[in-house]
Nucleic acid binder design. Structure first.
Lengths: 340, 340
DNA sequence: CAGATTTTTCAAAACGTTTGCAGGAACAGC
DNA sequence: GCTGTTCCTGCAAACGTTTTGAAAAATCTG
C-alpha cells in the first residue's frame, strides 16, 4: 500500500504538499499538482480512510438499522431501498453498513455505532408516529435522514410520500363514484404513514359531510397477506358490508381480491378496490382485475435520500433537506360506480 | 467522547497502562485493572475504531457485495443470509457493509473496498463455477469466506450444502419409485451449485445403467417464476414427457404444479415432483400437494459463516475452515410410483 | 539487608492523514 | 536596490490507539 509519505519521498516533496495536491487545494502549483496526481495514480495510491477519519472525523460510512422481529420475515421493501441506496451512495464513495437487530431496544444499535465512532450518519426507515430513534439522534445532534416522516413537527431531513394525499385523493375518488360505505385496510397506527392516511381518509369523508364508520377501519401489518385475508373476510362477510375498500398496500388488495372471489362478490360491480402501490416487483397492473392505485415507486426514494445524506454530511442545514413526493393516481379496472 | 488519555489523566496513570488494563493484558496489576475498567465504564469510554485500525490494521468491518442486474430484482435469499449474518456478526462486534453493484465488472467493488482499507474481509455468495472473485482475492491473500463453493479444488474457507448429494439422493428416490424419464429443472450452469446437482443427478442415473435424456435437462434462473412456467410447460406439453421432475427450487416446483394443473396432469399419479427447499418464507409444506423436498434451511448458514470469518480474522488456517452441510430428504405428497 | 527476580508501570514511537503557521522564492512597484 | 505582494512549499503538531523497550517498584532469596 502506497502512502502519502511514499509519494513524497519519491518526488522529494513534503507530505503536506502531496496531501494538498491530491485534495485540489488552490495554493499548490499547477505543475506540482499534476505531477503528484500522476505519480499517485502510478503508485496505486489510495488514501487510508481510518487515518483520514482520525483527523477529519469523517469515516465515509453511513448505517441503516433494520428491525427483524423474531419470527417474522423482514419487510422486502427495506431491502429494496437498501439496495438502491447502496448503489447511489457508492457513487459518492460512501459505504453503507447494514445492521439487522432482533433485540427489543430500538436505540441500542444506534448507540453502539455512535460510540464506536464508525459512522457519519444514519438512514432511518419505517418511522413510528412517535419514534424514539428520532428523539435520540436529534438530542445527540447526530446526522440522520428519515425515509418517511414521524408525527409532530418535522425539523429533521426526510423524504416522504404524501400519505395524507393518498388517503384524501383515493377516498375522494371513491366518493365521486358514489360510494359512502368505504372501508380502510390501513397499516398499524404506530406507523406514521398509517396515521397520515387515516387523516386524509377522514378529512375527505368529512368534507362531504360523512363520518367514517369505525367498524370499517382496520389496522394491520401490510406485509402479512394472511392477516389481510382474515380481516378482509371479516369485513366482507358482514351483512352490511362496505362497497369500497381502500387498501394500504397492493398485497392487501390482492388478499381482498381473493376473498371477494371466494365470496362471489364481483369487482368492481359490487365492490371497488383501490390500493397504494410501492411499485415493488409485485405487479398490481397484471392483477385480475387490474388495480386502481395511488402509485409511488419506492425506488425513487433512493436518489433523494442519498443526495440528502450527502449534503447533510457536507454541513448543509438539516431543515432545508426535506422533500415530499406527490403521488400519482392511476385509475384501472378495480373501481367503479357504487352499486345502487 | 472520552479517550484513553482522559482516563489516564483522570487516574494519574499512563495511557499504556490504561490500554493494557482494558485489553486484559496479564502484566497489569489486578487492582489497577479493575480500577481502570470501572472508570472507563463511568466515563463512557469506547475505543475509537479508526485509531485502533491505524495501528492494528483491523477495522472490525467485513463486506458483502451483491450483484443487482439492471432490470431484475435481487434474489431474496441474499437478503435472508445478509440479515442473519448481520445479527450474528454483531454479537462479535463486527459490522457488515453491504454493497450492491449494478456494474458488469465483478472485481471492481472488491478492489475498491480493499484499496480504501475499510474492511478486514469479505463474504462471497452465489459463487460461479469459475469465479473470478475467488481468484482475485486468493491472489491478493485477502481474507474471505464463501457461502457455497466454486468448481475445482476448494482451498478457501466455505460453507456449502451437499449439492451433489441433493442431485444424487433426489434422483435415487425417484429411480426407486420406478421413474426412468426424469426431468431436471436446474439452475444456470455458470452457478457452481447447478453443476454439482447435475453431476449428482447424472451419477445416480448411471449407477442404474441409465443415461440422462438431454431433452429433459433445463437450466434456468431459479428465482424467476415466469421462465420456470414457460420451461415446465415446454417439457410437459411434449408427447413423450418426463414422469418426474427434479426442481432446483420450490419456486420452480410451484410453477411446475401450476402448469401440471393447467394441463390436467395429476400429481403424483402422472407426475412426481421433488424440489430443493431453502426453507425461505415460501412454504413448500403448505402447497397443494405438499412437496417432497431436499431441505436445508438457508438461515443455518449464518452461524457457521460468521464463526468462520471470525476465526479467519483471528488468523486461523483458511484451509481448516470448510464445512459441508448434509441435506435432509423430506418425503411428502408430490412423489409417487411411476405410472405404468 | 543486599542482591536477584518478578511484577508493574511508563515514555516514546508508530500507524497515515490533515492543517496552522512559518518561510522561501519570484516578481512587481517605487 | 528595497519593500511589499503573491505564490508555493515545508515543518511540526494533532487525531486516538497499540506496542516496544526500559525503568521503577515490589517481592522474594539466602
Amino acid at each position: 500500500m502506497a502512502t502519502l509519505k511514499d509519494i513524497a519521498k519519491h518526488l522529494g516533496l513534503s507530505t503536506t504538499t502531496v496531501s494538498r495536491a491530491l485534495n485540489d487545494f488552490p495554493e499548490v502549483g499547477r505543475d506540482t499538482r499534476e505531477l503528484v496526481q500522476r505519480t499517485a495514480q502510478e503508485l496505486g495510491y489510495h488514501p487510508n480512510q481510518s487515518a483520514r477519519k482520525l483527523v477529519t472525523g469523517k469515516s465515509g460510512i453511513v448505517a441503516m438499522v433494520i428491525k427483524a422481529p423474531p419470527n417474522r420475515q423482514i419487510d422486502p421493501s427495506f431491502f429494496e431501498v437498501m439496495g438502491g441506496l447502496s448503489t447511489k451512495l457508492a457513487e459518492k464513495d460512501i459505504d453503507l453498513i447494514l445492521h439487522v437487530t432482533t433485540g427489543q431496544d430500538p436505540i441500542k444499535p444506534y448507540q453502539r455505532l455512535i460510540d464506536k465512532q464508525t459512522v457519519d450518519g444514519f438512514i432511518l426507515n419505517a418511522p413510528l408516529e412517535n419514534d424514539p430513534r428520532i428523539d435520540f439522534l436529534r438530542e445527540r445532534k447526530f446526522p440522520f435522514v428519515v425515509h418517511g416522516r414521524a408525527g409532530g413537527e418535522a425539523d429533521y431531513p426526510y423524504y416522504d410520500i404524501d400519505n395524507y394525499g393518498i388517503g384524501y385523493s383515493a377516498t375522494t375518488l371513491l366518493l365521486d363514484l358514489g360510494h359512502q360505505q368505504i372501508g380502510l385496510l390501513n397499516g398499524p397506527l404506530q406507523a406514521a404513514f398509517a396515521v397520515e392516511r387515516l387523516r386524509g381518509y377522514t378529512d375527505a369523508m368529512e368534507a362531504r359531510g360523512l363520518s367514517p364508520n369505525p367498524e370499517f377501519l382496520r389496522h394491520l401489518d401490510i406485509h402479512q397477506p394472511q392477516s389481510a385475508i382474515n380481516i378482509a373476510g371479516e369485513l366482507l362477510e358482514r351483512p352490511k358490508r362496505p362497497t369500497a375498500l381502500l387498501c394500504s398496500s397492493s398485497l392487501i388488495a390482492y388478499s381482498a381480491v381473493k376473498v371477494a372471489k371466494l365470496e362471489g362478490i364481483p369487482i368492481p360491480q359490487q365492490l371497488s378496490l383501490i390500493a397504494h402501490d410501492d411499485d415493488l416487483p409485485f405487479q398490481s397492473a397484471l392483477l385480475e382485475p387490474s388495480l386502481t392505485v395511488t402509485r409511488s415507486p419506492l425506488r425513487r426514494a433512493c436518489g433523494p435520500l442519498s443526495e440528502m445524506i450527502f449534503k447533510l454530511l457536507e454541513g448543509d442545514d438539516p431543515a432545508s433537506l426535506q422533500q415530499t413526493e406527490p403521488v400519482e393516481l392511476v385509475v384501472r379496472d378495480s373501481t367503479g360506480p357504487a352499486p345502487s
